[in-house]
Simulated assay, not measured.
Amino acid sequence: MTLFTFPLCSSLPHPSSPSPTSPPTPISSTNSIIDLSTISFSSLWKLRHHLQEASRLATANYPETLGMVVVVNSPSYFPTIWGWIKGWFDEGTRNKIYVLGRDPGPTLHTLIDVQDLPKAYGGELEWTFEDEPSLDEDARKAVGGEMPRGPAVFVNGRVEQLGLVGKE
């Protein structure tokens, strides 16, 4: 994220850039949608230790990269579970997490621009979880047509594949 996605996004034109000739506004955080529509209580229970460790690591090491997390299609029991686990997160992180129910549309549209929101959540973006990242024209140009395969970084406006030195 910090070696490819954020530098790529920072290099692209976006509305918060003061002018075309000024340096780009750095992108340094990400928003995530977590869809719980297919999770069962037993699955969630089995993942509890993993989720606790993931939240500990994220809170300790990457709090500045978390823009927000939006939990959608949460089952009726999830607010109770959220009440149990929200203590794993510091207050600043908790304030970035939105737990929405089965009809997240109206609230979700206030959090994420409709053109950037997948159609499955009431947006305009033609994208599903199985798809590659959806790149606009500027992003496609920046990465040379499509997302690179394998490890890569985005440095000085270009993709650099890692691990390819001397492997021709």
Score class of each variant (00 low, 15 high):
4 F>E: 01
7 P>L: 01
9 C>F: 04
13 P>Q: 07
14 H>P: 03
16 S>L: 13
19 S>M: 05
21 T>A: 11
27 I>H: 06
28 S>G: 06
29 S>K: 05
29 S>T: 01
31 N>Y: 00
34 I>H: 10
36 L>A: 05
40 S>M: 01
40 S>Y: 01
42 S>Y: 10
45 W>M: 09
45 W>I: 04
47 L>M: 13
48 R>L: 10
48 R>T: 12
50 H>I: 12
55 S>R: 00
57 L>T: 10
58 A>N: 01
58 A>L: 07
59 T>G: 11
59 T>K: 00
62 Y>Q: 01
65 T>G: 06
70 V>K: 05
71 V>D: 03
71 V>F: 09
72 V>T: 11
75 P>E: 03
75 P>A: 03
77 Y>V: 15
79 P>T: 01
81 I>G: 01
86 K>N: 10
88 W>M: 11
89 F>A: 11
99 V>N: 08
99 V>T: 08
100 L>N: 07
102 R>Y: 03
105 G>P: 00
105 G>I: 06
110 T>S: 15
111 L>C: 08
114 V>C: 14
117 L>F: 11
119 K>E: 15
125 L>S: 11
133 P>W: 12
135 L>N: 09
138 D>M: 10
138 D>S: 15
141 K>R: 15
141 K>I: 13
144 G>V: 04
145 G>H: 12
145 G>F: 09
153 V>I: 14
156 N>H: 10
157 G>E: 04
158 R>E: 14
160 E>A: 06
161 Q>A: 10
162 L>Q: 12
168 E>C: 12
